[in-house]
Simulated assay, not measured.
Amino acid sequence: MSVEFVNGMQASALHPVKWIKSSHSNATGNCVETAALPDGRIAVRNSRDPHGPALVCTRDGFDGFVAAVREGDFDPVIG
């Protein structure tokens, strides 16, 4: 799997986009948000830092990442 992310892009520079928070987010604010960008890429940010860095990847890269998570490829990382 090859996922190409642009690291550290300021999330505030991506305005206006609609950020979507995961339904698995918890009350302590450990949340991941995603946004579909006008050019078809996907942005990911930490909701605790809405103006901080965001990762941006292609739709294919994001789909590949999600598929890998669903298939358990990262289970050793999360314990």
Rank of each mutant, 00 (worst) to 15 (best):
1 M>T: 11
2 S>W: 06
2 S>D: 00
3 V>N: 05
3 V>Y: 08
5 F>H: 03
6 V>Y: 01
6 V>G: 01
7 N>M: 12
8 G>T: 11
8 G>I: 12
9 M>R: 15
10 Q>L: 14
11 A>G: 03
11 A>E: 04
11 A>V: 04
11 A>T: 00
12 S>E: 08
15 H>I: 02
18 K>C: 05
19 W>K: 08
21 K>Y: 00
22 S>F: 00
23 S>R: 10
23 S>A: 13
24 H>K: 11
26 N>P: 09
26 N>E: 12
27 A>H: 07
27 A>I: 11
27 A>Y: 05
28 T>K: 08
29 G>N: 13
31 C>F: 01
31 C>W: 00
32 V>C: 03
33 E>L: 12
34 T>G: 03
34 T>A: 04
35 A>L: 05
36 A>N: 03
36 A>S: 11
37 L>K: 10
37 L>S: 14
38 P>T: 02
42 I>M: 12
44 V>C: 06
44 V>D: 03
45 R>E: 02
46 N>V: 06
47 S>E: 09
48 R>K: 14
49 D>Q: 12
49 D>K: 09
50 P>E: 00
53 P>E: 13
53 P>V: 07
54 A>R: 03
59 R>S: 11
60 D>P: 01
61 G>K: 06
63 D>Q: 09
63 D>Y: 02
64 G>W: 02
64 G>I: 05
65 F>Y: 07
65 F>I: 02
67 A>I: 02
67 A>Q: 11
68 A>V: 05
68 A>C: 03
72 G>R: 08
73 D>W: 07
74 F>Y: 15
77 V>L: 15
